[in-house]
Nucleic acid binder design. Structure first.
Lengths: 196, 196
DNA sequence: TAAGAACATTGATCTATGTCACATTCCGGA
DNA sequence: TCCGGAATGTGACATAGATCAATGTTCTTA
């Protein structure tokens, strides 16, 4: 149940199995079914979520009712609304399972305890968040400079696995284009397209 | 010379003046003139930059030659190309002073030393990067969902006067619109506009 | 295993914003 | 204090992608 988390942590920092025992006492495990919500807009994000198995997405809905996906979270990834988690303000995000999944949850108080007992985890989370920031900055720059087609091609290269598991209209929503546009540009790529 | 840095750090974590002495030995100070570059595309980002005084911007240039501004960095802010800084790969970013400025620089090796000697700074940097991630995620979601005009109005609300004093074409470039579009929507706001 | 829901495709049309070209204003340095 | 380049403004036109509407396809679950 905790193997993946231990593996992920020790990829970034060194942590003995004895130290890791502390983690086991502070996380709780939960199974979630496809389409089940871990967080709904307006609620406070009570947990940081580690995905043990399955796939989640976090997204907002704008005034027009259009969904915008911030993140897909696969096995071994973390997700949460960090702002809401730390400030306890209501969240603007929804977090929903796209497949039957298994997650590890940690509450804010447990998380504080964890960092007190294992301060070396500050480094782990710093690295994690740092990589996330780098990726988000890149995505922002690309969203401002690339055409819809290039964004899609880069996404496919970057996340080949997600392509198989996520419906197209959600990929469109992640890329900031409509499902119709994505459908059309896929057709164009498939026919004459770019390669040949 | 180090007062602002000390103030900024102790806003987030507690650090005695004695401990802070270590910092003083690991940073170097530099004055930069307006239009001077701290980093140019293709070079490795050798420093993390703390802005003591003045204003910098970091930006990329796409294949069409269009500039896209990732960040304005005011007094008390950090900037760097984190990816390049940590991987030592050539950077895709330029970092340029928009005013005569004064910065504190820390190299990668010094930064590693700093964290070894003062591990409590892991927490400081974690919090810093976390806030940056939250802000970048919000900016990304807004760039996907808002009109040019709303993005501009939010920008004006969000940022202090000093940033609003940067040339308009740079604000346009930060918002991901052309200077012509910004010019026109400012006219529209000024005349009939939104308020009245 | 059938019916409804979710998902994908396609055509016609619309629109916000980009592009290009030129005029005007502003500002820093000799 | 004047010059030249940077910055801004504006009109005419182009276009990527959105929107609307209809149809076809594939899950899923009772």
């Amino acid at each position: 149940m905790f193997e993946l988390l231990y593996k992920k942590i020790t990829e970034k920092i060194s942590l003995s199995e004895e130290e890791f025992e502390v983690c086991k006492t502070l996380f709780t495990s939960r199974k979630v079914r496809k389409r089940q919500f871990m967080l709904q807009e307006g609620d406070v994000s009570r947990y940081q979520i580690f995905v043990n198995k399955g796939l989640l997405r976090s997204y907002t809905i704008d005034e027009k009712g259009t969904e915008h996906i911030l993140q897909f979270a696969l096995e071994g990834w973390w997700t949460a609304d960090l702002y809401s988690f730390f400030t306890e303000e209501p969240s603007l995000f929804n977090i929903e399972a796209l497949e039957d999944s298994e997650v590890l949850l940690i509450t804010r108080p447990s998380w504080e305890t964890l960092l007190e007992k294992l301060p070396v985890l500050e480094r782990y989370f710093r690295i994690l968040i740092q990589n996330s920031l780098i990726a988000t900055q890149r995505r922002l720059m690309e969203s401002l400079s690339e055409t819809a087609e290039k964004k899609y091609l880069k996404f496919m290269k970057m996340y080949p696995e997600s392509i198989q598991r996520v419906p197209q209209h959600m990929i469109a929503s992640y890329l900031g284009i409509t499902r119709e546009t994505l459908s059309r540009l896929r057709r164009d790529i498939a026919t004459g397209g770019s390669g040949a």
